[in-house]
């Protein structure tokens, strides 16, 4: 419960950061990748993800998970174990809580299961995945899934995401909106943005 409260506080604080403009055109995500967007969006970094919206994050939102490393949670706020006191860890007296983590050997099903379990914590209500099929992201083999949940505000949401594991890291972009109106309004835009994703070619001299 206390974890949930601290999560709620973090989300509340995040909600006071102003959004910045993403003009239509090419958008770069540091050294991870680029996309093309046909329309302007509002952008706000949150935790380790990028979030985009048009009318507000509770109405429609695109979220970019760019390179989640092996053994990491989808967002840092979800890593409850990171907050355990070292002394408790030493004496083996840690709270009975585990975080859901990405592992490089995960199958597509497991990644989607990780996604829905993690999103359930963020949304505060149960997120279920409805479809899972093979797909590509930035030309790499991956998967596409659909999901749904009803928010605490009693408004139904639906979403879809496309992901791939590349260079042992998880890249996942998803779009979510209210079942009434907002999801449908910008679903095609989201689709085009995800289609346009390309990985940045990196000098991979690490052997």
């Amino acid at each position: 419960m206390n974890r949930l409260i601290s999560l709620a506080i973090i989300l509340l604080i995040a909600s006071c950061t102003p959004y910045r403009l993403i003009p239509a055109g090419k958008v770069e995500f540091a050294d991870q990748g680029t996309v093309e967007t046909p329309i302007d969006w509002n952008w706000r970094p949150f935790d380790i993800v990028h979030t985009w919206t048009l009318d507000g994050p509770n109405l429609q939102e695109m979220i970019f998970h760019m390179g989640v490393k092996d053994g990491k949670t989808l967002m840092e706020v979800l890593d409850v174990e990171a907050g355990f006191h070292p002394l408790l860890v030493w004496f083996g007296k840690v709270p009975d809580e585990v975080s859901f983590r990405f592992h490089k050997r995960m199958t597509e099903h497991e990644i989607v299961d990780l996604f829905t379990a993690s999103m359930s914590k963020i949304a505060g209500s149960k997120v279920v995945s409805t479809q899972l099929a093979p797909a590509t992201l930035g030309g790499k083999p991956g998967f596409r899934f659909e999901y749904a949940f009803t928010g605490k505000d009693q408004v139904r949401r639906k979403g879809f995401g496309v992901g791939a594991v590349f260079d042992e890291k998880l890249y996942l972009i998803h779009y979510v909106g209210t079942e009434i109106y907002y999801y449908d309004r910008n679903q095609a835009d989201a689709e085009r943005i995800i289609q346009s994703f390309t990985f940045k070619e990196k000098d991979k001299g690490k052997g």
Binding site: S15, Y19, D55, G56, N58, L59, G151, D153, Q154, V155, R156, T178, E179, I180, Y181
Partner: peptide, 16 residues
């Protein structure tokens, strides 16, 4: 649900 959505939109209006 339309009434719930109205509350959610209202919240977005107040905030944004």
């Amino acid at each position: 649900e339309l009434q719930s959505l109205h509350a959610t939109v209202g919240q977005a209006i107040l905030e944004y």
